[in-house]
Amino acid sequence: MNNTTLPTEELKKYGIINEDLSFSTKLNEDDIQKFLKGYTIVADNDKNRATFQLTDNNTKLKVIFLERDKSIDEILKNSKANIEYSNIQDLSKSEKELIFEKKAFIFDKETNKVVEFDLIKNARELTAIIADKRDVAETNLYKNELMKLKSFLQDKIDQFPEMAKEIAKDLNIVSKEIGTVDGISKKQHQSQEQNKSDIQLNVNDPDVYQDANRMREENKEQEEEVEKSRRFRR
């Protein structure tokens, strides 16, 4: 890794480093070290997202401009109530590259922060979180987003034949998660039906009414016996 040949002019242009070559105060030490090791810096502003990555032994800066279908403020606000989904795509609309991401934003009550998950890269982790919520509406919404992503990927296989193998790999991940979600939905449905059945038994179970009627008859007989005893004593 070569830190002496950083593309300083480009880094200044995008505010990653200052005129004195120090890194922006918006980046903590961990961010800086990861960036120098090839990790991507992400910057969000309204519906726009820019990613920055050092390449070629830290001599070049790769910049990609993306656009969301929703503003970041809207996403953060809505995610505090329910899981929020958003699509991100390449603004350049390059015919040689396919850049499309579907994200899920979940509010973490323990850290009081909104956490971003990718529906492909974080598929298993995200599905596990959905399952733990045991919320039929959230499960159905998640499956719907997976189905839309699957449809998108299927369409792109023909459009990007040179990337067909990579797209097919992502498609398999999405299809597998859909199968897993179907299993989760089935269990949730069975649980709901069981709960309904339990309620109906409590209200409509003939044994319950028979027991109640029998108790009423027994109480009536006891009252009659007491009354006879009182009359006899008189």
Results as ranks from 00 to 15, higher is better:
E101K: 12
I129W: 01
N28C: 10
D205A: 11
K93E: 05
Q210A: 12
G38W: 06
S197N: 09
Q188C: 06
T139N: 05
D73R: 10
E29L: 09
Y142I: 01
I17T: 06
R134E: 04
I106G: 03
K143F: 08
E218N: 11
S94K: 07
K80G: 01
Q154I: 08
T111Y: 05
D20N: 14
E116A: 11
K26V: 11
V203T: 09
Q194G: 15
T55Y: 01
G179C: 06
F35L: 07
S197Y: 08
S94D: 12
L27Y: 02
D30R: 14
K34S: 09
R68M: 09
V181C: 06
E10N: 13
L66E: 05
R216S: 15
S24M: 04
E223S: 08
N78F: 05
D211V: 06
D73Y: 06
F232T: 13
S22K: 01
D207T: 10
K62Y: 03
N3V: 14
E29T: 12
L21C: 06
S151W: 02
Y85R: 03
N78P: 03
I178T: 06
T180C: 07
N3D: 06
N204H: 05
I184M: 03
D205H: 13
N195P: 02
S86R: 00
I130V: 15
D211S: 09
K103C: 07
I32T: 01
K47T: 11
K176G: 10
E145A: 01
L126K: 00
F232V: 14
Q192N: 13
I157F: 04
L11G: 02
S71Y: 00
L54Q: 02
A81W: 11
M215N: 12
D207R: 14
D170Y: 08
L171S: 05
S22P: 00
T111V: 07
G179V: 00
N195V: 09
